[in-house]
Amino acid sequence: MADLTLIETPEPLDPASPLAVRGLTVSYGEKPALFSLDAQFPVGAMSAIVGPNGAGKSTFLKAALGLIPKVSGEVSVFGRDADRMRDRIAYVPQRASVDWDFPTTALDVVLMGLFGQVGLWRRITGQHRAHARACLARVGMEDFADRQIGQLSGGQQQRIFLARALAQDADLFLLDEPFAGVDAATEAAIIGVLKSLKAEGRSVVAVHHDLSTVAEYFDHVLLVNLRRIAEGPVATTFTADTLAEAYGGRLGAVQIDALALQGG
């Protein structure tokens, strides 16, 4: 350890990665939620962020987007500051984070995704509306365009959020628990849309809580519990060993066995 030296000029984070972070620490008061986290997601892939409750998964997305302040660390989106890349990022927040009693319709919410294009002034034209309706159609909700959002089911609300992200026409999609509390039909519809995004060469990063579907849905996984436990392709990274480390005693041997993973 005697020959430790330091390089003070930071190397840039990988510009090919749609989202890369280094040394990210975030805390709520005195309690760190993420500690010195490094991560680098591959382009054109479906990536999952997996870890136990309270492990900092949603915090990671929010800090990467600059929605909450970080104590230290750097974030890059396609090699640049996230602030300057906002029009290339589409964010799908947790469904519970908004007031669904708000007086607005499904189509209106999707049109919000076009704010980057229309800004304060530009008129919303028939073309914009057609685009928004097409996004609704992609999530199977075209018949609900004029419904007040509070009258939709949980799964339908989640689809509206996804349609809004689609309207943004972004290259990086960040989703916070998109499958939480949705019905099976919605889950299938959402995963279909995400796979089509991947086919178009876009990158998807989703906070995911259902271990049984990680291998089926995703290519790349970041296992997180306060810090990075493991990261890499699902086939080699999502193993009994890494799961045991991420979940500790919370995940019994039986559950790990049920996932039919190699190792351990």
Binding site: D83, P93, S97
Partner: peptide, 17 residues
């Protein structure tokens, strides 16, 4: 538009910058 957007979904509005 910004009033409506940020009143409905503050997180999304922030993410838009």
């Amino acid at each position: 538009r910004p009033l409506k957007l940020s009143s409905f979904d503050e997180g999304f509005a922030r993410a838009l910058g």
